[in-house]
Amino acid sequence: MQTHLLSNVTSDKSTQMPEKIDHPQLCQWLDAVATSRDKIAFTHLFKFFAPKIQRIARSKFPNETQASEVVQETMSNVWRKAHLFDKNKGAATTWVYTVMRNVTFDILRKIKGNKEDTLSDDIWPIAESIATEEESFDDHLENKQLLTVIDELPEAQQQVVKGFYFMEMSQEQLAVHLNLPLGTIKSRLRLALAKLKVQLGDHHD
């Protein structure tokens, strides 16, 4: 069934000849917003995404005010959350789509259920992409090993262990602190570790 969808997408592409998306350019703009709060880069992003978001929002909301609320909210989140974008984890379009889908979901819920809750970011986490297949190396850098160790402990012990305060920063916190994109932090950690391994090799000789 997935192949079916894939072929649909492809045929759409070939019949309508859409303009090609310049993915590296989009990544670069997002990166500039994240690292240097670059308003010009943001304006480029806005001009690329906003009209498309508006068109999509109009198909979901009959009310023009609500449609532009989606544009406003989505682009505002792009500005405020750009540092959470990680180009190693997926395309900029996927990331903006996720932001837009989540905004739309919460607004729709607000209209239908009269609920002011924000559930979307729990259901579709923006900070961490749901795609984790290719990340075994990244995971490895994180507390994964520690967590596996914890999971192997008897339950009482686990509670004790989980009861301590991790003084260690998360990669996200470090990224925020250094005002760098998460992807940069990850690649720096990777490089630093690679260097360290070389040094260890030297010790052996």
Binding site: L146, V149, A156, Q159, V160, G163, F164, Y165, M167, E168
Partner: peptide, 20 residues
């Protein structure tokens, strides 16, 4: 406890198991 702490370092722990 999986806590890495070097001389001079401070951390906060929560203790509730009787033996601890």
């Amino acid at each position: 406890l999986p806590v890495f702490i070097l001389p001079g370092g401070i951390t906060r722990l929560r203790i509730f198991e009787p033996r601890y």
